[in-house]
Design a protein around this nucleic acid. Structure first.
Length: 586
DNA sequence: TTAGGGTTAG
């Protein structure tokens, strides 16, 4: 009878706990747990593990951990349940500590444990541990398990080791949508967009099914390639399939259209969303910001605050500040930064936000203020922040501050060729040739070299590359004649090239070099494209640059004396998207 | 009973 009673109790607790887990019913679950304690019921490992799962699903990680710590004996499932709770909520170091504790207590990990713990192997420390865990996985013979394998390849890809990731993937005896998506996303997140797309095409031929995660990853790759047509195809497809978690795909689509230069489409998707997450707002804000549309950025941020459904995060404020900086709205940007620093938005400024303010002041010719701002920063300024200031000094020929900043940068970043180049150019602008020579000698002495940066433009399947002052193209006569013709039209149309570029994948120092030299390369590249007249253009991405497309399209309308269609706008975006500069002007 | 891939920013 006693045995039957215990058994009944067990089933009763199990049933109620399961219901509480499914419904995330915190209070009821807590009452069940309290009842066990009150009646001095000693739950078996199974039920204690269910309590861990219950608490972790309800977000009460401390309570879950207490249950684990108080267990007289634990099995692999209870360890793994707790590990999973930590890793899913982003507590990576707690997860790794727990895993080590599990090994020390002679706990034997299984395929569930390995698949889970690898997702917490992020950052340098995590990656080193991840490598050791890989050895353990090989020893325990879980290497070819599909869940473990996809987790493993994802760990390598997220640590930038795409070759190792690919190796794990190629050795998997079977593949499914998750492992295929993981490798596609690995390439896409590293900016290896062509490779990501190639794999996606291959898997499709092989009959793999795709889901919303696959499409989200593919859209990332398409954004990187500014491949508007393919992006539209994916858009049509996901609409037809009515995939779940459409909100994630809508966010990806907003981003894809904006990176392809089509902000009208981005905004249409954004406006028609029944629900928006912070990522939706950020994607739209950043889209405007990258195109120098400061007013739209500020207005959208205001709507977001008024709607008051989602809270701004650090990306939101970064987008807003960048938008103000590139849209020439420095006073509003500074005001928003002050409000941010005073806690108005619930997000506190990080180094990137400070960097934005330096950039903002620098662009507005307020170099002295920018310098004072950097000196008073409560966070140690990084080389990128100093580099941004140096660039501003160069643009506005402020030799006094530029000299101080430049020499400081040479000390903290002696191997960065760009700093020498900018400092030398600054001296050159003030005709201080002795100093120019001194910086150049220093560069030689330290054996620092600067490779020229290039633009890649693909015209009708032929690749053309350019660097600044490049006269080597076989059709240079035609190209330069066209450049000359265009420059006359530039002037006639009253167009002042807008240097407010936002660069992706480049740091402040590189950005400044591009700002200094991009108009010449823009002319060269555009000259070739204009000469080729109507041939489809594709830019082979290395460094991606978005010049203010909006103004560029307006300018093109004036040049050609006709309205520029949306399609054309995106094409112009392609054109300017691949332009970068070497910054070598001596 | 426990498990793997995703969207914005740098």
């Amino acid at each position: 009878m006693a045995m039957r009673g215990i058994e009944m109790k067990f089933h009763g607790y199990d049933t109620i706990l399961n219901a509480c887990i499914n419904k995330r019913a915190i209070r009821e679950g807590q009452r069940v747990h309290a009842h066990m304690i009150k009646t001095r019921y000693l739950p078996p490992v199974y039920l204690r593990t269910r309590l861990i799962v219950f608490y972790s699903k309800c977000g009460c990680l401390g309570d879950a951990r207490r249950v684990l710590d108080e267990m007289p004996e634990r099995n692999v499932v209870s360890w793994t349940a707790m590990l999973s709770a930590y890793s899913q909520r982003g507590f990576a170091s707690e997860a790794l500590d727990l895993f080590m504790q599990m090994l020390r207590s002679d706990g034997e990990p299984n395929e569930f444990t390995f698949a889970t713990v690898l997702t917490s192997c992020i950052g340098i420390v995590g990656f080193e541990l991840g490598r050791q865990i890989h050895c353990l996985i090989i020893k325990r013979n879980f290497e070819f398990h599909i869940y473990v394998g996809s987790s493993l390849l994802d760990m390598y890809a997220k640590s930038g080791r795409i070759y190792e990731a690919r190796k794990v993937f190629e050795h998997l005896p079977e593949r499914d949508v998750v492992s295929c998506t993981a490798i596609i996303s690995g390439y896409a997140q590293l900016g290896l967009d062509e490779e990501a797309l190639e794999l996606f095409r291959r898997f499709k031929t092989e009959g793999m099914t795709s889901n919303y995660v696959t499409y989200a990853s593919v859209l990332t790759a398409l954004s990187g390639l500014a491949a508007l047509d393919l992006g539209k195809q994916v858009h049509n497809h996901v609409l037809r399939c009515e995939l779940p978690f459409f909100i994630v795909l809508q966010n990806s689509l907003i981003d894809m259209y904006s990176k392809c230069g089509n902000l009208t489409y981005s905004r249409r998707i954004f406006d028609n969303m029944p629900e928006r997450t912070i990522i939706s707002w950020n994607a739209m804000l950043v889209g405007y910001s990258k195109h120098g549309m400061g007013r739209e950025v500020v207005e959208l941020f205001k709507s977001m605050r008024e709607e008051n459904k989602v809270k701004p995060d650090s990306v939101t404020l970064l987008g807003v500040l960048l938008g103000c900086s590139h849209g020439g709205m420095e006073d509003i940007g500074l005001e928003i930064f002050d409000e941010m620093a005073n806690g108005k938005y619930g997000v506190h400024p990080e180094i990137e936000h400070y960097g934005c303010v330096v950039d903002l002041l620098g662009r507005a010719s307020r170099v002295e203020e920018a310098f004072e701002f950097v000196k008073k920063m409560p966070i140690e300024p990084t080389a990128a922040v100093w580099g941004s200031l140096l660039g501003a000094c160069r643009v506005h020929s402020n030799v006094d501050i530029g000299e101080l900043v430049g020499h400081h940068l040479l000390e903290i970043e002696p191997g960065n060729a760009g700093n020498y180049v900018i400092l030398s150019n600054l001296y050159a602008s003030a005709s201080r040739w002795e100093d120019v020579k001194r910086v150049r000698d220093l560069m030689n002495e330290k054996a620092v070299k600067k490779e020229p940066g290039r633009s890649w433009v693909e015209l009708d399947q032929t690749l053309h590359t350019f660097h600044a002052s490049d006269h080597s193209h076989p059709r240079r006569e035609e190209v330069f004649a066209k450049v000359k013709e265009l420059s006359v039209r530039f002037k006639e149309a009253g167009y002042v090239p807008d240097l407010s570029c936002v660069l992706h994948d480049v740091d402040e120092e590189q950005k400044e070099k591009i700002l200094l030299g991009h108009s010449e390369k823009l002319a060269l590249t555009f000259g070739l494209i204009a000469t080729s007249d109507g041939v489809p253009v594709r830019v082979i991405k290395n460094l991606r640059i978005c010049v203010d497309c909006h103004n560029f399209a307006k300018f093109m309308s004036k040049i050609y004396r006709r309205e520029v269609s949306l399609r054309d706008k995106s094409r112009f975006h392609h054109i300017v998207d691949g332009i970068c500069s070497c910054g070598e002007y001596w």
